[in-house]
C-alpha cells in the first residue's frame, strides 16, 4: 500500500548515501531501513523494534538523527542519508568510534550503530553535553546489555577529544 493507502507501483529513487549517489527501485512505502539493508546491502543499520522505539535503526537524514524503520522511502526526498558506514569518514564520527573502542563500550553490539549515530548528532550540536543532555538525547536508544555507563563515559571521552 502507498502512503495514501492506495496500491502503488515500484518507483525509482535517487539517493545520496554517505556522499555517494545510489539508485533504487522499490515500493514507495518501503521503510528507509529496508532500502538500506536489503537493496543497498548496507547492514550496519540494525532492525530492532520496527516502531521507532529502540533506536537501533538510527541514521542521519539531512543531518537529523532519524529512525529509519518508520520513514518510508517516499518521504526521504532530496535529503542526504548518512549511516554508520559513513562514520569512519566523518570527523566527529571517527572520534566517537575511537572513544567507543577506547572505553570498550560494546557488549553484544547490536544497538551500538544506532547509539553512535545519536551520539554523533548530539556532539555535532553540543560539544560539552552534560549527563542530563546525554540521558535525554540517548533516551530513545535502548541497550539490552545495559552498557549505558560505558556509553556515557565514551560520549564524555569523545567530547574531550573534540574540545
Amino acid at each position: 500500500m502507498g502512503e495514501g493507502g492506495e496500491a502503488m507501483s515500484m518507483t525509482t529513487y535517487d539517493l545520496q548515501v554517505n556522499g555517494r549517489r545510489k539508485s533504487v527501485t522499490v515500493d514507495p512505502s518501503t521503510p528507509l531501513l529496508w532500502v538500506l539493508r536489503e537493496d543497498l546491502k548496507m547492514t550496519g543499520t540494525k532492525y530492532g523494534c520496527g516502531i521507532g522505539a529502540c533506536g537501533a535503526c538510527t541514521v542521519h537524514l539531512g543531518g537529523v538523527a532519524t529512525r529509519s524503520c518508520v520513514v518510508p522511502i517516499a518521504l526521504v526526498g532530496g535529503r542526504s542519508i548518512t549511516t554508520i558506514e559513513g562514520m569512519g569518514r566523518d570527523p566527529v564520527g571517527r572520534v566517537v568510534q575511537d572513544a567507543w573502542v577506547e572505553k570498550d563500550v560494546v557488549q553484544c553490539g547490536y544497538c551500538q550503530s544506532g547509539q553512535i549515530m545519536s551520539v554523533v548528532a548530539l556532539l555535532k550540536s553540543n560539544r560539552k553535553p552534560t549527563d542530563t543532555n546525554i540521558e535525554e538525547s540517548l533516551g530513545g536508544n535502548l541497550c539490552r546489555c545495559g552498557t549505558y555507563v560505558r556509553i556515557r563515559e565514551a560520549v564524555k571521552r569523545a567530547a574531550e577529544k573534540l574540545a
Partner: peptide
C-alpha cells in the same frame, strides 16, 4: 527523529 512532513501510513507514523 520520527515524524516527517506527511503521514507515513505504511509505518503508522
Amino acid at each position: 527523529t520520527c515524524h516527517q512532513a506527511k503521514n507515513a501510513d505504511s509505518t503508522g507514523l
